[in-house]
Each structure stands twice: as C-alpha cells, then as structure tokens.
Design a protein around this nucleic acid. Structure first.
Length: 1009
RNA sequence: GCUGAAGUGGUGGAAUUGGUAGACACGUUGGACUUAAAAUCCAAUGGCCUGUAAGGCCGUGCGGGUUCAAGUCCCGCCUUCAGUACCA
C-alpha cells in the first residue's frame, strides 16, 4: 500500500470537521465527569487580515507552531481553546472598493472564503465554531460597547485606576475639582462645588469630556492626504505611511483620542509580569519612553511669563547658558522683542514649510533664532538668552528646554554654532571638543550649593531647592502619546455617537450595534467630510432609538451621527476575550466563560505588532480589569514571535528606453518622441550585439548609465536620428532592475521561457532585457514577501504536490521558530521522503506489517528517547529539532526492522501534533476507532535509556584522540588505570608521563601531558 | 547614536548545565536498479597535508584572556539584521 497523502489528508480533514473534534467546551456545556477534571489551555494566533492575495507560506508558520502546541496539550489532557477568525476591517478592501465600486463586505467575504479553504487544507485544529470577524455587526457591537465604557470612565492618578465618570461628577458636586488628581486633556481651571453647580449643562459636559478615557480633542494629527485619513504614530514608518508609502503632514483636527497615556506607568511596569520576548518588551519600553527628571520654571525677565521646561538633568542647571523653545511654542509670539520679530517670524515660517520628514532627514543642520528675550536663572538670577530652534520638538515634554551645552551634545553644537558661552560645570572634564553626558562619572563643579556632588545627590538637592522656590518639581515624562482613534474611512466600526449642540452623546447600549450605513461612494465627500458623509440614512432619532434619514435632522429629536470610523486596531484589541464566548448577544462574554478561560496562555504572532496591536490590547485589557470585567490585567501570559518567512525575489535587468539630456539638465524620456525611430529593433541591436559583443559592459547593475555614443557605431546611429533636433551625444541609457515572478525562474536561476512570456505579455520583451550570450541576466535577493515584489509563494501548490503534513514539517524544519528565514523549497523533498519512510514502517507491498511481536531493547530505547526529546522540544518551542528527532527515530526503527505495535503505536501519537493526517490514518489502520487527537501522550520511561557502558572520549590536552567503551559504574581510579593501560594512550604519550588525568564520570577523560 | 538579536561546512541548521563541533536534512560526487527517466536504495562528503591506509595540522566573525577542557564564560573589536531616535 502506498502513501496517498492527498486522499488521506482530505479524508481526515473532513472527519475532524464533521465530528467537531476540536470544539472547545465551555463550563456551561460540561457533560459532567471528564471535561470538568481537565485543566484549560488557551492557544491563540494573531488572526489574519484577509487580503486579496490569499495566504502565502509565511502565514502558516506561526499557525503550525501553535497548532502543534494545541494538539500536544490535548494529548496531555487539557481542554484546549484554539480559535481562529478574521481582522476583516481595513484599508485594502476599501481601496479596492474605491477603484471598483464593489462593496468591501463582498470582497472581504470572498477573501475569507479563500483564506478558509487555504487554512483548512493545512489541517489546523481550530475550533471554527468560535470564529469571529471584526467587521461582523454581531462582533463590532462589543467594540462599540467598550468604546462607550471608556467614554464613561476617568483615570484617577492617586489610585492608578479607572473609575466610572459618575464618581467624578459626585466629587465635582461635593467639592469641585481642586482635590481631583486625574488625567485630563488640558490644564483645567480649578472650580469649586458651587461653581460646578452654576455651570451650564454644556460647560459641565465640556469639562467632563476632558477627563474621559476616550475624548474629543483638537489635536495635531498625522494627516495622510493620499489616503485621506489620519494615521497613528505606529502606522508611520520613516515619515511616510506604512501602507502605500505616502507622505504624511501635521494637521490640526478634532478627533477621538484614547487616553493610553494614563496607563503608561502600568503598561511599563507590568511588562515584568509577562513571559514575552525580551526584544519585544524592550520595544514597548522604548515606545513608552519613561524619563525621570524635573519640571523647572524660568521667569522671563521684565514680563509675567514663565517658561516651563522638562529636564532629566536638573543637576546641570548651573550649566544652562541659554534656553531653546520649539518654533511652535505659544510663548514665542509673546516674548519676542520688536527688533527680533521679523527674523523670528521668517524662521517659524520656514520650519512650518519643512515637513516632518525633511526635518528628520536633515539632522545635522543647526538652525535657530534669538528671540531677544531673557529668562532668569532660578538660582543665580543671571539673565539667560531665549532662542528658538527646530531641534526642540513641540510634541515632547513642554516643547522647551534649558540648554546645557557642556552636558548635551545638541546644546553644545547649537552653542558653538551661535557663539554662546559653554560654562563647564563638571570637575576634571575636558569639554573643549564635545559635551560630557556620562551621568555615572559626573562630579558637579562651579554650581553653588551642589559643588562636589554626584549626579544623583545633586539632582535631589536641586529639586528640593526648586520646590522651595516654587519654581519646579520632580517629574516623570512619557514619550507615549494618547492614541488618535478616528479614521476618515468607510470600512471600519462606526462610532455609537451622535451630536447634540456639538457635544457628543453615546447611544444607549441596548441599541447597539450601530451598523455601518450604505454609501454611494467610498471617497470623502466634496466638502471634505469622511465617506460616511455620503450616507443618506445616517442620523439618530432619540425617540425611536434608531438610525434614520439625514433629512429628518432637526436637532431636537433627530441628530447627526459621527462620521468617522474606528481605526484598524479597535477590533483586534478585544477579540481574544470574545473567543471565550463568541455568540453571546447579551454580554461581551459571560462571567462564567472569562472565569474559566481567564487569559491567553500562549499567543503566537509577529513582532511587527509590538507598538500597535500588542500595546493597545494591553491597554484595553487593563481598562477592563479596572472595570472588573476580566480577572487579569494582562491578556496574554506568554507570547512568542514567529520569525518572518522571507521571499527570494527574482530580478531581470531592463535597458530603459533612453533619455535625452537637455541643456537645462532636465532628463526627457526619448520613447515618447521616437516611437518609430527608437524602436524595438534598435533596442534589440544595442542590447544583443553591441553591449555584449563589444564587452563594453560586463556586469550590469541597476542604475548604470551609459551613453549611446559609447556603445554604438556613431555613423549608423546618426541615420536614426537624422532630421530630429536631438544630438546623439546626449542620449543616455539606464539599466533598471525589475521584479519578475519567482515561478518564472527555475532552480538554476534561469528564466522559464513559456511562463515568463506569459507574464511579460509584451512580446518584444527579449529586446529590452539584459542578456549575456543570449541568456537573461537574473539576480536574486531576499526580501519580505509581498504581492508587488512577485516573490509570494502560496502553500497551495506545496499541499498539492507534497501534502499538508510535508508543508507542516518543512516549515518547522526550516529553522528556529523565532528566526527570520528565506523561503526555499529545495529541502522539502527531505521531509517528504521522511513521511514516506514512516509509512513504510507500517506498510509494505503486502499490506500492514505491524505485529504484536515483542519489542527489543533497541526499539524501546529509540521510542523513549524520541518521546523525551520531542516533549522537551515542544516545551522549548524548538520544533525544528523535533523533526530531526523523528527522522532519526524512523531511520533507526527501519534499520532495526521494527514491526512491534508496542513501539509503532505510541510513536504515532508523538508525531501526530506535527503531521496529524498521516498519524491519524496509520492510527486508524492499526485498529483505533477514536481520533488520535485525544489519545494520551506516551509516558517517557527513563529505564529504557539506562546504559551499562559509555563510549568515553579520551582526549589529550583537550583534543579528542580516540574513544574507549567502559562500564558506567566504573570509578575514577579504575577508569584512569584502564585508559593509561591502553596502547593508544601510550602511543599518544610517547613515553612522557602525564601530569594530570581528569576523569569526568559519564562524560570524558582528559589527559594532560 | 541608543536598544535588542545574531555571526558555525557549498546551503538550512544541530550541539539543554563548559566535556567527542558539524546531529538531521538539502546539495554535490560515485554506485545499484531501469531500455530510459522518475522514484527508491547504498556509499562518500568541513578544509589542508601525507601516494593509500594509519595518522597529523587547521577549523564555530576577529584579537586577547580564564580553564585540564571554550561554539558555549570574561574583556576588547568587526559585521549583519531588527526596533527606535534631534525624547531634553
């Protein structure tokens, strides 16, 4: 009987689905007995965004790992929750809708179908009965619900916890806001209980809005004109949008924000409590960016103004020789002297024009302008000139710094550039070349009352003195900004919000979900409103409690609804909890469900979500914990980042049509004007004859430029250009590298003609591409897999050719899970032939060959060392070495000619998490009627591994020379004697007497001579 | 710049506490089977030296060190990847 993997895999996938083998049971459905006794285990994958490109081989890597773990846990007797779903709101579906008019819901549905088919064919043990989709109203009802909960909460700094807004109102009514220590948007003027009482309702609402955990605020946002939307900081990479690479500018807009900054300290501290990769925690720490220092107020001379600065080095305050404000700082206008006004304004205008990206690209240029104003040093009372400079960022700290040139390189450079004094306040340090920033070796000098102190003591003393003066205090500053929560998009969760007199109102929870309205167009409206502005049925009737036509808006009973939608991370910040009770329409999840499943035990996904999804989810979980909704303030106990699978991009080299260099220096593409002259034939001749035969260019690289005249016979070219205004000398060619689909290239890096021609529809392709001796030049590079790079490899072809079990084993065999690695199918035959060998252990031409014969000592040894190693590997997430272990086991059992069921049956259970289909089939063939997936994992028995002797390596001065088989119970003295008596030892020593003999029992013998 | 991770044959990668470096695969070479191919099986395979064998020398990015013994520990460099950055 042969191993027909396609049939076997289809058969068992159907069996698992039909019999709901992987359905996880909630306590309410426990049948009594068995399940109750089982401990729970929750294994989660980051759910995918269902893109139109379908699954590529990189996606399943993490899923296979988590599936192995989930299956292993089932074998170990756990009630395993292993769900899957779709993060189905998002930009690509919307972009597609804009282009085609196709409703995003339809494309999304189609994409999900493809994903599901692809996932199913790999044989994952997901409990699909719990599937969630973020774009499903039944799901986003609860995303809206959490938004309302956040709106109805405020954060008390004193108890470091969120509370219901009603408690804040109570405080306001009783004592005003003077005693409240809460996070809020702006500095709120103090008011008394009496004043609160006389505020209008709107005033009260405005004040409360500033305390809420989600609030409306005019904030400077990252606006991406090309996408027509606001982006969060983590959606911007190198100053351009992560999706599409479009430029981003700063813009002021009224937006919903999430007060994640309130949780900054807890998000930082609690990293200690979770088992997440150190690198990921470090990324989050950097992102949160806590700095401890002081806020210091400097009086501005001859005015009532004060400049507030944040510094981490209050100990260097006596070294402050100037101050720098960001150009956007609100005091700049107020303190600038008339003489400096023109210069200051010119500078502000110039910096405003520069985009964030320009500023970042140009770090070296030092620029700034003196305001003409002076601040007063809090201690020496000396005047300090106040400058503005764009190296000071408006968005960090107070947007102003006290500049200490001797202690900070940027201040140093600024001072040097503008010839400002650089007083040295460090003992025994030379600052003639650069600033001195090493805190640990600092001894302060020339600094009045802190002379001779180290950094730590001086800092303390300065803060105390500042507090005494009422000009400063110790302060902690975070880099983490509040997260903008509004997107000017269609395909996202609508807010459950309507507006009365400009003030936001939450829709009652019982009326959720507020469904996404239909629109004609998915683009912003002509007046610049978000796409929901196109909806005609998008108003809230407070009497009927329903969404009604916009025409009915009267601002008495029918009000306008919010036009923004929520960002991509909204839906993914709570899905892990919803899986616990996904169909509950009355609650986000039942108490019973959350009490049982508690939190995610193992979460597997990419590290690219470090500062987005993983931080926002932790934030929401902490909020829900404060509200008593969840039992843990961290949602995932352990997290593993699977490494990215990279693609091997393939390139060919194209000769670009040629450019004409005008006097002005402007390059004009020639093709446009020379269609008939500058034709394919012409190009063909250049490329095939002259470049190659003349050996003018041996190795072409992208970007190479060459002159037509250098590579072609001048006279014959002139014919072509006769009668044109173009001068042959000025025609240039360039070579560019273009991506070609990887499946057009064979293993020897040669183009497969038919496939290539099919892709490169233009029939004359051969004339434009660079060749050597008629062979196209092809190069390869490792890059991220992406559709646009044509390097995407789909798992479908592999499943078809080798089977899902081969794919699973191969992805694991590729290397350590957490490591990035390029995809290369070359080795897949190795794991595939392993599976065939495994099969042959059970079947030969005559049929099943497994017998009840007794197993040998060697058989047992092989089995038990395999059990031991594989179990250790799973615990350490070292799946690659498990695959090797299986190979060794099968190789050994094959050479031992093992047919014993006693060995071969448990072996299947050990292999089954990795290669479940073949294991299930063979298990079934051995006569088992129950699925292998819940079979008990075989117990490791060390007695089978106990050896009586050891092949000791005998080394001389640390170099192994030969081995000796010696009994393990032999003592050191006897071993030493035996080794020294050996002829080979004598040969090695050549008559010398060993200085020392080291015997490590059970390990090694080393002779020092 | 800072932070984190990593550097081992032709390739992917093993080596769990310092104890036989290169497991397991891929690839390559030779052989068997076959009309042939595929598939399968067998053997060899880090480099160098010695005609072969036996054996020797060199080998885990580089330079030092600790140790009987270092891929593993310590010090100093180099390189690559990832994250982050006028963060005061």
């Amino acid at each position: 009987m042969k191993y027909h993997f396609n049939d076997i895999e289809a058969k068992w996938q159907k069996f698992w689905a039909d019999n709901k083998i992987f359905k996880a049971t909630n306590p309410s459905s426990f049948g009594g007995g068995q399940e109750e006794a089982k401990p729970k285990y929750y294994v989660l994958d980051m759910f995918p965004y269902p893109s139109g490109a379908g699954l590529h081989v990189g996606h399943p890597l993490g899923y296979i790992a988590s599936d192995i773990y989930a299956r292993y846990k089932r074998h170990k007797g756990f009630n395993v929750l292993h769900p899957q779903g779709y993060d189905s709101f998002g930009l690509p579906a919307e972009q597609y809708a804009i282009q085609t008019g196709q409703h995003p819901a339809i494309t999304t549905e189609e994409n999900i179908k493809t994903y599901r088919r692809q996932l199913d064919q790999i044989g994952f043990s997901f409990d699909w009965s719990r599937e969630v989709r973020t774009s499903d109203p039944k799901y986003y009802k609860w995303t809206q619900w959490i938004f309302i909960q956040l709106y109805n909460s405020w954060y008390c700094k004193r108890s470091q916890q969120a509370f219901d807004i009603s408690e804040l109102i109570k405080v306001f009514v009783e004592e005003g806001n003077t005693g409240v220590n809460a996070y809020c948007d702006k500095e709120i003027e103090p008011f008394t209980a009496k004043e609160w009482d006389v505020f209008s309702n709107k005033q009260q609402q405005e004040i409360l809005l500033q305390y809420r955990l989600t609030y409306l605020a005019e904030s400077e946002v990252n606006w991406c004109p090309a996408l027509g939307t606001v982006l969060a900081n983590d959606e911007i990479v190198n100053g351009v949008s992560e999706r599409g690479g479009h430029p981003v500018i700063r813009k002021k807009m009224t937006q919903w924000s999430m007060r994640i900054s309130a949780y900054a300290e807890r998000l930082l501290q609690d990293l200690e409590t979770i088992d997440w990769p150190e690198s990921l925690k470090e990324t989050q720490r950097n992102w949160i960016g806590k700095s401890v220092g002081a806020q210091v107020e400097f009086r501005v001379q001859s005015s009532e103004f004060r400049v507030s600065v944040f510094t981490t080095r209050p100990d260097t305050i006596f070294g402050a020789s100037f101050m720098t404000l960001s150009p956007e700082h609100e005091l700049v206008q107020k303190i600038t002297t008339p003489e400096q006004k023109a210069e200051i304004e010119a500078y502000i205008e110039a910096t405003a024009k520069r985009s964030e990206r320009d500023r970042m690209a140009d770090v070296k240029t030092i620029s700034g302008v003196f305001t003409g104003a002076y601040a007063e040093h809090p201690f020496t009372k000396q005047p300090i000139p106040i400058w503005i400079g764009d190296y000071v960022l408006a968005s960090y700290g107070t947007g102003a710094v006290m500049s200490v040139p001797c202690g900070d390189q940027r201040d140093y450079d600024f001072a040097k550039h503008f010839n400002i004094a650089i007083p040295n306040i460090f003992e025994g340090v030379d600052i003639s070349q650069e600033a001195f920033a090493d805190k640990d070796t600092t001894i302060i000098a020339n600094s009045d009352f802190i002379n001779g102190l180290n950094h730590k003591d001086a800092t303390k003393k300065v803060i105390l003195a500042l507090e005494k003066l009422g000009q400063g205090e110790g302060k902690i500053n975070f880099r983490l900004r509040d997260a903008v929560f509004s997107r000017q998009r269609y395909w996202g969760e609508p807010f459950p919000v309507y507006y009365v007199d400009g003030m936001p109102q939450m829709i009652d929870v019982e009326n959720l979900p507020i469904r996404l309205p239909e629109v004609e167009k998915y683009l912003p409206t002509e007046t610049g409103e978000p796409p929901l502005g196109n909806a005609t049925v998008w108003a809230w009737d407070v009497k009927q409690c329903s969404v009604v036509s916009n025409q009915l808006i009267d601002n008495k009973t029918v009000f306008p609804l919010e036009l923004n939608t929520m960002p991509g991370w909204a839906g993914s910040s709570q899905y892990f909890n919803r899986y616990m009770d996904p169909h509950n329409s009355a609650e986000i999840f039942s108490k019973e469900a959350i009490d049982y499943w508690q939190q995610v035990d193992l979460y597997i996904g990419g590290s690219e979500h470090a500062t987005g999804h993983l931080l926002y989810s932790r934030f929401w979980q902490k909020f829900m914990f404060d509200k008593g909704l969840v039992p843990h303030d961290e949602f995932a106990k352990k997290l593993i980042n699977q490494g990215m699978i990279l693609g091997m991009s393939a390139f060919v080299y194209r000769i670009n049509g040629g450019y004409y260099k005008y006097e002005s220096g402007f390059d004009e593409e020639l093709d446009v004007y020379f269609d008939n002259i500058f034709d394919d034939h012409f190009l063909y001749r250049i490329v095939s004859f002259d470049l190659l035969d003349g050996n003018l260019i041996e190795e072409v690289i992208a970007g190479d430029k060459f002159n037509l005249i250098d590579i072609f016979d001048k006279e014959s070219i002139k014919e072509y250009f006769e009668g044109t205004p173009f001068d042959v000398d000025k025609i240039t060619f360039t070579v560019s590298k273009i991506h070609v689909p990887v499946d057009c290239i064979d293993l020897k890096n040669q183009i497969i003609d038919e496939k290539f021609a099919d892709w490169y529809k233009d029939e004359i392709y051969s004339s434009e591409l660079f060749r050597t001796n008629g062979v196209f030049k092809v190069s390869r590079e490792v890059e991220k897999m992406s559709k646009s790079k044509y390097n995407v490899v789909s798992p479908d072809a592999i499943c078809e050719q080798y089977g899902a079990d081969s794919l699973r084993l191969y992805e694991m065999f590729l290397g350590p899970l957490e490591q990035a690695k390029p995809w290369n199918t070359a080795g897949i035959t190795g794991v595939h032939s392993f599976l065939k060998k495994l099969w042959k252990l059970y079947f030969d031409d005559k049929g099943l060959k497994v017998t009840d014969s007794e197993s040998t000592k060697d058989n047992l040894k092989t089995l038990h060392k395999t059990i031991k190693k594989v179990e250790e590997d799973i615990i350490n997430f070292s799946f690659n070495t498990s695959v090797s272990t299986f190979m060794i086991a099968v190789n050994e059992l094959t050479s031992q000619k093992c047919t014993s069921k006693e060995i071969l049956e448990p072996l299947l259970i050990v292999i089954s998490p990795y290669a479940p289909h073949i294991a299930e089939e063979l298990w079934n063939q051995l006569g088992n009627t129950e699925s292998i997936s819940t079979a008990k994992f075989p117990k490791f028995n060390k007695k089978h591994l106990i050896e009586s002797s050891k092949n000791y390596p005998i080394s001389f001065n640390g170099k192994m020379r030969f081995t000796m088989e010696l009994p393990l119970d032999m003592n050191k003295e006897d071993i030493e004697a035996a080794v020294l008596a050996n002829d080979k030892t004598k040969e090695q020593l050549q008559g010398r007497t060993p200085k020392k003999v080291i015997v490590v029992l059970g390990k090694i013998v080393n002779i020092v001579g």
